[in-house]
C-alpha cells in the first residue's frame, strides 16, 4: 500500500502498542512544521521591509554619529519637490474623480453596447509599460500637442495612467449598491442631482476612497513616466530621488528623502485600511 508498505491493520496494531510515544512524535513533528511555515512567512515579511529599514537606518547615520540632521534637507532643499508632488497628486485625484465617476456610473447603470471592448480601451494605459508610455507621450507632446515639458502634460500623463484604477473600485461599489435606494429617493421627490449627492455618493464613499488611495500611492511615487515627460522645472520628489540615486546616492540626505516618501505613503495606506478595510481594493493594484 501507499503508507510505507504496511497494511492498515499492522499500522493500527503498532500504534496501539505504543500509543504515548506515537502521538508525541506526531505532535512534535507538527509543531516543527508549524514553526517552519510561520518562519517562512516572517522571513519574507522581513525581506519586504528590509530595504525600507536599511534606507531609514542609512538616513540617520552621519559623520558625527546618529542624528536627524539629513532630514533638514527634506524640509530644506527638497521642500519644493515635495510640495510639487503633493500639488500634482491632489490635482490628479480631482481630475480622476471628474473623469472616473461619470464613466463608472455609465458603465454600471446605462445600456452601453460593447462594454468589454470599451473597458479595454479605457484600461489601455494601465497595461502599457511605463517606458513605452513615456516615449509615446514625449513624441505626441513635442510634435502634436505642443505641451512639451509642461505641468499640464505631466498631469495628463498621470491622469490617463491612473484613472482606470479609480474606475475599478467605483464600479465594484456601484454594483454592490442596490438600485432600490436610488428609486426610493426619486419616489420620495428628490430630483436626479439630489439623489446623486445626498444618497448615492455617500454610499459610494468606500469605493471612491479606494480610488483616491490608489491614485495617491501611484502618482506620489511615480518617477519613470515623469523622467520622460517632466521638464527641468517640474521635478517631483520621486523623480528627485531617482536623480539623486544616480548622482548622490550614497548621501544620507537621499536616503532621508526616500524614507520620507515611503513613510508618508505607508501612513496613508494604513489609515485607509483602518477606516475602510480592503473590500474595494480587490482586483486592483494593491491586494
Amino acid at each position: 500500500m501507499v503508507t510505507g508498505g504496511k497494511t492498515l491493520a499492522e499500522r493500527r496494531d503498532s500504534v496501539a502498542r505504543r500509543p504515548r510515544l506515537w502521538t508525541s512524535v506526531v505532535r512534535q513533528r507538527r509543531r516543527i512544521l508549524d514553526l517552519v511555515q510561520h518562519g517562512y512567512i516572517w522571513l519574507w515579511m522581513l525581506i519586504f521591509v528590509l530595504p525600507f529599514l536599511t534606507t531609514f537606518a542609512y538616513s540617520l547615520r552621519t559623520s558625527d554619529g546618529i542624528s536627524l540632521s539629513p532630514y533638514q534637507h527634506v524640509f530644506g532643499s527638497f521642500k519644493d519637490n515635495l510640495l510639487l508632488s503633493f500639488e500634482v497628486t491632489v490635482i490628479s485625484i480631482v481630475l480622476n474623480l471628474l473623469v472616473a465617476l461619470p464613466a463608472a456610473y455609465a458603465i454600471v447603470r446605462f445600456p452601453i453596447p460593447g462594454k468589454g471592448l470599451l473597458l479595454s480601451i479605457l484600461n489601455l494605459a494601465l497595461y502599457t509599460p511605463a517606458a513605452v508610455m513615456g516615449i509615446s507621450l514625449v513624441i505626441v507632446y513635442n510634435f502634436l500637442f505642443h505641451i512639451a515639458q509642461s505641468l499640464t502634460g505631466l498631469i495628463g500623463a498621470y491622469v490617463v495612467g491612473t484613472y482606470p484604477l479609480m474606475l475599478i473600485p467605483i464600479i465594484v461599489a456601484l454594483r454592490d449598491l442596490p438600485q432600490v435606494y436610488e428609486e426610493a429617493a426619486r419616489c420620495l421627490g428628490a430630483n436626479r442631482l439630489q439623489t446623486l449627492f445626498r444618497v448615492e455618493l455617500p454610499l459610494l464613499g468606500p469605493g471612491i476612497s479606494a480610488g483616491i488611495l490608489l491614485t495617491f500611492v501611484i502618482v506620489f511615487n511615480e518617477f519613470l513616466v515623469t523622467l520622460f515627460v517632466a521638464g527641468p522645472g517640474n521635478t517631483t520628489a520621486a523623480l528627485r530621488v531617482f536623480n539623486l540615486t544616480r548622482t548622490a546616492g550614497i548621501q544620507p540626505s537621499t536616503a532621508a528623502l526616500a524614507s520620507t516618501m515611503q513613510i508618508v505613503s505607508f501612513v496613508v495606506v494604513i489609515a485607509f485600511f483602518r477606516f475602510f478595510g480592503s473590500r474595494y481594493l480587490k482586483g486592483t493594484y494593491l491586494i
Partner: peptide
C-alpha cells in the same frame, strides 16, 4: 438612456483617446 450614458462616458473616452490611443498609434507610425 444610451445617449446620456455615452455623454457620461465622454470625458473618460476622450482622455484615453487623446493620451493613450493617439500616442500609441503615433508611436507605430514614427
Amino acid at each position: 438612456q444610451l445617449v446620456s450614458g455615452l455623454g457620461l462616458l465622454l470625458p473618460a473616452f476622450l482622455t484615453s483617446l487623446l493620451l493613450s490611443v493617439v500616442p500609441l498609434v503615433y508611436l507605430v507610425r514614427v
